[in-house]
Structures are given as C-alpha cells and as structure tokens.
Amino acid sequence: MTLKHLLAAGALALAGAHATTADAFELGIVAFQMSAETHARVANAAEAAAKEKGWDVTVLNSNGALPTHAEQIENLVQRGVDAIILAMSKPVQFDAQMEAVSDAGIPLITVMSGSSPYALFDIQVNEYAVGAEAALYLLGQLNYEGKILTQRFESNVGTRIRGKVLDVVLSENTAVEEVGSHSMARTQSWQDDVRNGMSALILQNAGNFDGIWASFDGQAFIIDDLLAEQGMSKGDVVLVSVDGGKETFRRIASPDSMLMASVAIPFEAMGAAAVEAIDRIAVGGEPVDAVASGPYLYMNAVLVDQSNVDEFTE
C-alpha cells in the first residue's frame, strides 16, 4: 500500500468518523493528559454523564503538551460546540484560548485547573484541607516524631498546595524531619522520573526513614512497589498520599502494600458535576450563581485508610 492509498483510506475513515446526532447538544471535553489516571477519570466520567443525557461528546487528549492543549481548545471553538469542559487545564497559559471560548459565547467549566475570568467556574476540592488531612494523618501515624521522605510535584497547582501545607505542618512539628525529597519534573515520562528519584532516595536513606509523603497516588504506587522490592511489608513505613481510586483502595486494604491512607478526591463526581452544571446553565437557562457562587465549586474529599476502606471497595 502506498502513502497515497493510505491517505485516501484515511480520508474515507474521516468521512466515516462523522457521526453526530443532528441538533443534539454538543460538548467538548479536553483532558490535559489522559495517561494520568486522574485526568482520564474526570474526562471519562464527564463523557459518560453527557452521553447519558443524549449529548454528542468530543473527548480530546492533549498528551501533556501545552501547544496541543491550546490548539485543541481553538479547534473546539471552530467546531462550534455548545459547551466545553477542561480537565486539569492551566488558566494562565491558556488565557487567550479561554478568552476565545468566552468570546464565542461557549460556556466553559474547568475541573481542578484554577480560576479563570473566562470560565463559569472551576470545580475543585479544597486543596488546603486535603493537604492538611494527608500531612496530619502521616504525622499522627508517626506519633509526631521521626523521619520522612517526600515526593513532590510543583507544576500542578493542587499538588503544589499539598506540598506547601505539608511544609507548614512540618514547621510546627519539628520532631518530624524531612530527610530527603524528590521533586517530579517531567510530566510526559513522570513514572520513570519518580522511580529513578525515589529509588535513589530510598537506597540513600535505607533504615533511616519512617514515613513517605507523596503528592498524588500515581507517585505513591511507584514508591509502594519500590518499597516492596526492598522487602518491606505493611507497617514498616507509613506511605500516605492523595487522590483515591480503585487501585488506591485495593492497596490500602492489601496486607502487602505500604500505602496506609489517601485523601480520596471525587474525580468521577467532579466530571459528572461539570456536565450537570452545564445542563442547568446552558440547557436549563439557570443563572451561574444558582450553581456556584464565585470562581470555585468545591466538592468534598474523604480520607480513606484501613478503618473505612471497605466502604470504597464494595
């Protein structure tokens, strides 16, 4: 098959891909990086909720690339969708694109992104409270005494806040010392970054730490596996993180995992809430204030440990 045949087949495939329902409400969803489970959970839940309402949905994945994200938002504006949801976007970087969405009269709701003057609102959990819960749980498990390692991520507003709150908690509880810290920098190959950084820290501090704080569960899974490779078992080290989800709950319940607790953020509920809000505002004509007052719509996060994990695994 030559390239020309290939492109011709592609053209036909494109024509075949055109299958929208006439006059149905059209929703565009852009997830910043679907390879990150949390982004995918928001996008997939929003897609499912929208389809349940009989809407046409276009889901896009920016693969963690800023220019791609910008282009995808612009392309959705050109498509003329009726509403847009952005999962884990970055309002400052995409100021111009969000303004274009607003100028086109398209309602925009962001999830876990931060506020933008061009969005109706951002659906968030209170990251300060989430950070405090995770930090205080970890310190509580250590009886407010001991040494910890931390795995941070500064490029995301939520994980950055969690890290800052941890620092505040540590500054007030000086008997707990942070003996090593790794900051995840690479977003596209982050698993390798975490694995390399934390395996070095774990080896360097072998036998000299009691707990590990991870800024999100994806990091915690990698750390958990590294600790298991070192022959550790549950209780040897207290591993605490944030996000929640099936795999998180499985590990918390498992006797083989070091993961003790996670603050579960309701990503699926956030995706569904974004769709529900658009339904009320863009379809039902309700004022934005009736759905959310101010730039944020806060949802509750719950700390999950062995005492209540059964409620989440059932």
């Binding site: 891909a17 392309n75 498509r79």
Partner: peptide, 13 residues
C-alpha cells in the same frame, strides 16, 4: 488532519 478530526468529533486516539 488534527483540526479535521476534532471537527468531525473523532475519538482523540
């Protein structure tokens, strides 16, 4: 292609 696929509502993958 990038633009057209979005306008067609094709899946992201």
């Amino acid at each position: 292609l990038d633009n057209g696929l979005v306008l067609l509502g094709a899946p992201y993958y």
